[in-house]
Computed example of a mutant assay.
Amino acid sequence: MASKEQGKMVVTLGTVHFKEANEAVREALDAADTVELREVFAQRYLGCGMPAGKRLEIHGVPGNDMACYMDGGRIEVFGNAQDQVANTMNDGDIVIHGRVGDAAGYGMRGGRILVRDDCGWRVGIHMKQYQDKCPSIVIGGNAGSFLGEYMAGGVIVLMGHAGPYLATGMHGGVMYLRHELDECDIPEGLVQEPLEDCDRAVIARLLGEYNDAFADELGGPVDASGEGFVRLRPASSRPYANLYA
């Protein structure tokens, strides 16, 4: 199942059960900093708890909860990814050369997710930030319903169109949308407004990283200037204050 090629471990998973798959991946990561996974067929929990300094290159479709609790390192998926990518992730980088399923970034506390194409429902739900920890998600295509639901911190950049119930319950963080919302579609308690210089700097950094990952596949870089984007944020830093005595 495992071999060493050009200084990195190569593990072929095939249809092996996810428990055996993860045991093989952990053994390979103990032996090398970079591990390439081939013939990945929806095995769950790949890269779970992976520390800084490690790298996974995944060829195929990883299953649910890839990179859950990840604490550093980098995972690159050459294909689509399933649901709950980066569940409660603390740090690290995830690059997906395709689309991602539902609830990516659930409770995410740090790190970054770059998605070349679309995403499913409830991406960025319960994202949060603290001090210098500021998670970010960049979505190159369209988003399903409830993007940024109950979002408490961090940054989401959406280049495609948002689905229904955008930012429901959002009470922290910021979204940058390339497609301005109609006034009637702005969720209660949020404001849509033009960018400031600090916003453009954030977008330039994140879309620059997006271009580094995907420009060759897309036939050229996307515009990273922030032109045409708007900012969506909570109108108040304490939107639920009236619910407490």
Rank of each mutant, 00 (worst) to 15 (best):
D30F: 02
G47F: 06
N87A: 11
M175W: 01
R231L: 09
H59W: 02
A241W: 11
Y150D: 10
R116K: 15
A241H: 15
H161N: 09
V85L: 13
G172E: 03
V16H: 05
K19T: 13
I125T: 14
K19V: 14
V174C: 13
I75L: 06
G92K: 04
A201L: 06
H171N: 15
C119S: 13
G226I: 10
R233W: 03
H161I: 13
G153S: 10
V157L: 15
I156N: 07
I58G: 08
G163K: 11
R55S: 00
A31V: 00
M50Y: 02
E23I: 10
N90G: 14
D117M: 11
G107M: 02
A52R: 12
A241T: 05
I75K: 04
Y69N: 09
G153Y: 05
A215P: 04
A201H: 06
V11G: 04
G101Q: 01
F229K: 07
L232Y: 01
P62M: 14
R26V: 06
M70V: 03
I113N: 08
R44T: 14
M108K: 03
S236N: 11
C134I: 14
A103E: 04
G111K: 04
D102R: 06
L147R: 01
G92A: 12
A24H: 06
C184N: 10
A235D: 12
H97C: 04
E76P: 00
H97I: 06
P239E: 05
E227L: 11
T34A: 07
F214C: 04
P135G: 02
G160R: 05
Y244T: 12
Y244Q: 07
V10H: 06
Q192K: 08
Y176D: 01
A235M: 12
L29G: 01
A213D: 03
R178H: 15
S225D: 11
G63M: 10
G189W: 00
F41V: 15
T34C: 02
R38W: 04
V138W: 04
G220Y: 14
D30C: 07
D118P: 09
G105E: 09
S225L: 07
V222Q: 00
Y69Q: 14
E196M: 13
F78M: 05
N142P: 00
Y244V: 11
E188V: 11
R233S: 15
A21Q: 03
D83W: 05
L29P: 01
A81Y: 09
G172K: 07
L195E: 11
A28P: 08
H59A: 00
D65Y: 14
Q129S: 15
F41M: 15
D223H: 09
R233D: 06
G101T: 03
A213E: 00
L147P: 01
D132Y: 07
C134D: 14
K54Y: 02
I58A: 07
M66T: 15
E180N: 05
E149C: 12
C48S: 12
L56G: 00
G107S: 06
C48M: 13
G220V: 06
V202G: 02
V222R: 03
L46K: 09
I58R: 03
